[in-house]
Each structure stands twice: as structure tokens, then as C-alpha cells.
Design a protein around this nucleic acid. Sequence first.
DNA 1: CAAACTACGTCAGCCTTGTTGACATTCTAA
DNA 2: TTAGAATGTCAACAAGGCTGACGTAGTTTG
Lengths: 166, 166
Amino acid sequence: MADNASGSDSLLFLTDEQLRKGIEAMFFAYRGFTADPDRILEGLDYGRAHHRAIHFIHRAPGMTVSSLLGILGVTKQSLNRVLRTLFDDGLVEARVGKTDKRERRLHLTDKGAALERALSDAQRARMRAAYRTAGPQAVQGFRTVLEAMMDPEMRRQYQGLREDTP
Amino acid sequence: MADNASGSDSLLFLTDEQLRKGIEAMFFAYRGFTADPDRILEGLDYGRAHHRAIHFIHRAPGMTVSSLLGILGVTKQSLNRVLRTLFDDGLVEARVGKTDKRERRLHLTDKGAALERALSDAQRARMRAAYRTAGPQAVQGFRTVLEAMMDPEMRRQYQGLREDTP
DNA sequence: CAAACTACGTCAGCCTTGTTGACATTCTAA
DNA sequence: TTAGAATGTCAACAAGGCTGACGTAGTTTG
């Protein structure tokens, strides 16, 4: 009884074995996390890269190319390849910046918004099921640990993405 | 006060906004999760694929190629390309199966174990920091949600990887 | 105003890691 | 003995990263 690890003040949750379990949990869970959108994207000639772009453009409409670059952490060449197909297919449109005409403000078209909804519905469905199974307490802990695991710069992106329409 | 969402019986944690936050937390946290090993691997001519192989061979020494295939969820051609470089560089060795001589039982060499240690030390360090910051309660929740998010087959891999030395 | 800098696009080429398909070998099991 | 399983391997291809170099429009600053 005395060596029970469930006490909140115990440090047993920091053993290498516990940490290894956490590492593998991240690995396996991330696979599940991306599985449903991936299934939708496959066959549409899109990939995860397109999904990410669409997600963040939806999240902060009017975002510039360079702030999207910052969030995604890829090169402009890489992002451009993705954005070009999204423009060509009419999922995303770019409006010239109001104050700074060099900027291209990114927006989803209706068609783009429809795909975004399909993708995020699928992803949220899994998330919702997991949340419901785990319960609010667990969800709180989940978010806390993930946030602590981020690089500081990413944590800023996570916490404080503004509307990006200055 | 009455509309406070912190009550355990509230369902406010299932709103779309909460789910979106969870989705982005996974995205940003996974980046942090892989950042440290990636830094070590870069320049060594190895990538994440090598890391994954090394991790699971370390975890269950004597594992066969096909069970590793099952865990990693890639094609044998893809895995083989990775394994070949690990053999050639003397990080992994294959021992012919005792009862079934077609099998190749995979083991890390001393050199392979050294790299494994370097990689997992780096990854555990971040994990440990996150765990310590978040606390045992949060860690419990973290693991619970991640487990609920896995595909059932992956959940089995996660929970019950045996020693694999029958 | 001219020069410097910024935001963005684009061409070219390379790498890793995934994919299919086909085929060979070796061994096990019915 | 023969079917099937476990494995390796060759070839070809695609997505999505990367670097380097260059161009063009627009903004800022000396």
C-alpha cells in the first residue's frame, strides 16, 4: 500500500518506463489522429500538407503567406507547391493586402470551406470519442502535457493566434 | 460561477472549439516531440524512419521483420531500405530464427544501442520536463486520452507488446 | 528620390520515405 | 510433395521536404 504510485506527490510517474510509455503513446496516437483525414484526402490528389494549409487558413482567415510559413515550419517553395494547387482548384483565394499590397491574404472559398468541414468533422469525431471516453479531467491533463511539450515558439502560435486582420 | 466549465459533469469540454484546440495541440506538440531526435539524426545520414526502427527493436529484442512491419505500418520494401543501412552500418544485427529459420530476429548491436540511448535520452528529457511541469494528474489524463485516440489495432500494439522471444 | 529591404513567386535539382508490382529463395506445414 | 509463409530485392514512381539562385513588386529609409 505504501508503495502505491497513485499518490499525487509521487515521482514514480517520471520513471524511464513511464516516459517510454508516453513516447509510444504519442507515436501510436498520432497515427490515429491523422488516419481519418488521410482517408478523405487520398484519392482527391491532396495530402497532409494540403490539410494543414487548409486548416490554418480556416482558423485565421486573411492570414498572410509568411505567417502561414511560420506556423507550418516549412520553406516557401514547399508551401508554394501546395498553395498553387489549392488556388488552381479553387479552394483558396488570395486577396491583395489592404495596407501592404505585397501581401497576399489567404481565404477559403466556399469549396475550400466545404473540404475543411469534411476534414475537421472526421478529425473531431475521433477526438470527441476519445474525449468522451476519457472524461473532462483527462482532457485537461492531455492539453496541459501537450502544451508543455511544445517548443516555446510553437506554444505562442498555439496560444495566441490573432485574427490576423490588423 | 454556475456556468463554470470546470465541473467534472460538464460537457463543455466537447465543444467544437475545445476539439479544435485539442487538434492543434496534437499538431504543435508532435513537432516538439520529434524535434530533439531529429536534430541528432540530421547529419548522421539517418531519418525518423531509422529512429522508429531502432526504437522498436530496442523495445522488443528478437523481434521479427514482419512484426516490426506490423507496428510501423509501412511496406516491407520501405522498411527494408532502412534496415539495410542499419545492418551495413553495424547498428542492427539479424539472427536466424531458432525454430523457424526463415525469420530474422532483430537485435541492436552495442553501437546501435548507443545511438538508441542518445535518441531516447533526448526524447525522454523533453517528456520528463513536460511531465514534471504538468504533474501526475495531468500525465494520467494525457495517457488516457492518447490511448482512446488510437486505432484499436494500434492500441493492442501499445498495450501488449510481448518480449517476442517464444 | 534612390537605395535597401521585404513579401512573394518560381525554376532547378536533390533527398527521404512512402507506394506498387514482379520475382526469387528458403523454409514450414498440411 | 506441394502450397503457402517469411523474407529479400529490383525497378519505377510520388509526395513533400530541402537548398540555392533569381526576379518582381511594393515599402521603408537615408
